[in-house]
Design a protein around this nucleic acid. Structure first.
Lengths: 272, 272
DNA sequence: AAACCAAGTTTCAAATAATGGAACTTAACT
DNA sequence: AGTTAAGTTCCATTATTTGAAACTTGGTTT
């Protein structure tokens, strides 16, 4: 009958599951490490690892006899980042915003029920790269996560909430669905939300959703600081400026056509 | 009988082939775009795209009815970058080198027969991110490509050379295998090589390989500039400084053990 | 030195999943 | 209403994946 958790899409799904397992160790792994936590028999795991390695999705270090995620992923991610209508379009706006307000700005999207940071600019430390973009975080206790959830439609929201862990990180963490839902209604009525040290002590932020004209959630922007440097009221004062950036990004992302995409939707868009 | 080109590893290989096809368009694509260039029948391409989308390797834009590479790739690439012993270890060295010499520094690795840039620092424009890391380039006409090829073992080198296109970009491009092999011998005897406007007019660089103690190629470093700003002799004068960085990176990358990796090779390394 | 052990690799018949031609459903345009 | 192109589903056939078990390899113990 049903799919248990939308899990395995045949062989490809299983192979990608192995890829995730390798990623879940934050270091290169041995075959036996993967085998231990995989739910497939030895020969199967072995064959998948072979295939993934031969495909460049994993790399093998012959000296240490370990596997790590392969560089083909870096190449693909580069394309993914470029193809995404959000991140490349948003980048200059975020850069400007970070300079204007002198604080760290994050750009995030939903990835399943988690928050995925696709860009980050810290006016202090200029260069961060992959070490920052690609990071994931919890949705229920981050500014960007709550800002995005506040604008999801009911069924989608229910699904996302169902997958939250509600781990209590600090004394301010919203620890259950009821508290979260109340907060989301609040955010929706304001148009912006805060992270009140809910994820890390002393770290606060203000976040706004990036929405299409139809109200579909594209992502979220946040300005982050610490209680030592500022306070929520000061962050709230930045809302108009962030809103301006969010709106600009949404407009550009929506209207953006890729270089030679004129053959698509040409008649329809030329009409208006 | 044989595998034609080391190509398809069963179903997983085919699915990844579809992923590459989507990446090869540098914009979101329709189902029919992929179908057109794919060598599988309609229903097969359709099912693969469905699977990859449900797995988050592709994303679907319902408004435009287009597919793009998914954000799961960005998450995986983040892990790949972190797990790689080279890029994170090299980053601070490259940063310092770029500041020292005031020119753009690239860090590259071999990806099949191509050069993959895994890091880039331009002292002028601080922030680039994914837009730079993940880029690929030809091996036979770039400084880093030739520096790495010069230190490959014979069989591996033959394989890589066999896959070069030898497209003539400029009047200085090495246009055939003989010219390339002569150049590689030269590079190997010097320990470093140049790009003499072979790929782009006016762009020159000096490149050094990053080698393990056993002489295995880990990657390459290059310092790039233009004929308007400098010349080959001036770049050559930077070699000792670049060499220092390359050696330091190689040492760190080789000796680096990931945080809690003590359980591996502990006895063996403790012995020495 | 022989026996042992753990990690990694290969085998092969049975079970399962992928295949793809063709039919079907939409949606857009005439 | 009629036509065409794009996208989706069906299902018997075919090819691939599966996984227990046997085997190999390299290192350690008695």
């Amino acid at each position: 009958m049903g799919l248990d958790k939308g899990k395995s899409d045949g062989t490809v799904g299983k192979a990608l599951e192995i890829l995730d397992l390798v990623a879940s160790f934050e270091r290169p792994v041995r075959f036996s490490d993967v085998l231990e936590i995989a739910e497939f028999p030895k020969a199967t795991v072995y064959r998948f690892i072979q295939t993934l390695t031969s495909q460049g999705m994993l790399s093998y270090d012959p000296d240490r006899q370990t596997y790590a995620l392969g560089i083909r992923l870096v190449r693909l991610a580069h394309s993914a980042w470029q193809q995404s209508s959000l991140a490349p379009v948003a980048h200059p706006h975020i850069e400007k915003l970070a300079r204007d307000v002198g604080e760290t700005v994050h750009l995030a999207q939903m990835d399943h029920a988690q928050v995925l940071y696709v860009d980050k600019i810290d006016p202090g430390k200029p260069i961060e790269m992959f070490s920052q973009a690609g990071k994931v975080g919890p949705a229920y206790c981050t500014g960007v996560g709550k800002a995005m959830m506040a604008y999801l439609d009911a069924p989608h929201l229910a699904e996302v909430i169902g997958q939250q862990s509600f781990h209590v990180f600090t004394e301010f963490t919203l620890a259950d669905e009821a508290a979260l839902r109340a907060e989301l209604i609040d955010i929706r009525s304001n148009g912006y939300g805060f992270d009140r040290e809910e994820h890390e002590p002393d770290i606060i932020c203000v976040a706004l959703p990036i929405l299409t004209a139809q109200g579909r959630v594209l992502g979220a922007l946040s300005v982050t600081s610490s209680t030592q440097r500022t306070n929520l009221a000061a962050l709230e004062a930045l809302v108009p400026r962030i809103q301006l950036a969010a709106t600009a990004i949404a407009n550009e992302a929506e209207s953006w056509r890729f270089p030679d995409q004129s053959k698509f939707q040409s008649v329809k868009t030329a009409k208006g």
